Amino acid sequence: MSVVSGAPSEWITGRDGVPYPPEPWRLHADFGITLFLVPVAALPPEVAAHAPAGARMLRLGDRAIVGVAAVRYGEGSVLTYDELLVAVPVWHRGGLRVSISQIWVDSAASRTGGRELWGIPKHLMTTQRHASGGHLEATFTDAAGAPLASVSAEPTGRLPGRWPLPLPTAQRLPDVGWDDRISLNRMRAGIHSIRAEWRFDGPLSWLRSARPVVCVGLSRADITFGQ
């Protein structure tokens, strides 16, 4: 787990005493993303709890679109860490945005900064990962050591070039004072098709019977997160 020591003077000290970088965060990352179709009735309460009032989930009939991503923020980023997240696309204030409902990181600075800057409900985890030749094996466990998820992924194709991708988030996190927090973030990345196999446990067990429909990799992503 990443622990911040000797943080730069311009960093903000969080309510829990953990310092984190001010926005915007400049990040370089690789993503493995799978989109699932999940019956709306099977969604956990966190999905509605962390979306702003008035946000409407995108659906296909009685099923919601749910994205699960394993992310590695690497060298050159303001923080380096692994992330596991679950998010849903929502229509909010006349635009398409992403609402993150469950998320874990192995960086205390990312946890505290994500919560206080953008209302993202981050929790701490531990990551075991091995990447070789484009193949990724990763296992994620929560702060108490209980399993969350594991993924095995490898690329199967690639689009030429690098693509600009919007990444707006819309969040609610009342325990830090955010009832409606929009962040207009941006990214440029290479896009791959990937083959991914997920296993879910604990608070993600509701995804075990979900049907995967699309798997995508984003490589060498340059991200500006925050205003």
Rank of each mutant, 00 (worst) to 15 (best):
M1N: 09
M1F: 07
G6Y: 07
P8H: 03
I12P: 06
G14V: 04
D16H: 03
P21G: 10
P21R: 03
E23A: 12
E23K: 01
L27T: 01
D30G: 12
D30M: 05
G32C: 05
P39A: 00
V40N: 02
A41E: 09
E46Y: 10
A49V: 11
A53N: 04
M57T: 08
M57L: 15
M57H: 07
L60E: 10
G61R: 08
R63M: 12
R63Q: 15
I65L: 13
V68Q: 00
G76S: 08
D82I: 08
L85N: 07
V86K: 00
G94Q: 09
V98A: 11
V98T: 07
S99V: 10
I100Y: 13
S101V: 07
V105Q: 14
D106L: 14
D106Y: 14
G113R: 08
G113A: 13
R115V: 07
E116C: 10
I120Q: 13
P121R: 01
P121G: 05
T127Y: 07
T127S: 08
Q128V: 15
R129T: 09
A131D: 15
G133C: 10
G134F: 00
L136F: 05
A143E: 15
G145E: 12
A146H: 14
P147R: 02
L148C: 13
L148G: 11
S150P: 06
A153K: 00
P155K: 03
L159G: 08
W163S: 00
L165W: 04
L167Q: 06
T169P: 11
T169L: 06
R172V: 08
R172Y: 12
W178Y: 14
I182G: 11
I191V: 15
I191S: 04
H192D: 04
S193H: 04
S193M: 02
I194W: 06
F200R: 00
D201R: 03
L204R: 03
R208W: 01
A210R: 00
V214W: 05
V216D: 02
G217M: 00
L218N: 02
A221Q: 08
A221Y: 10
A221E: 12
F225E: 05
Q227V: 04
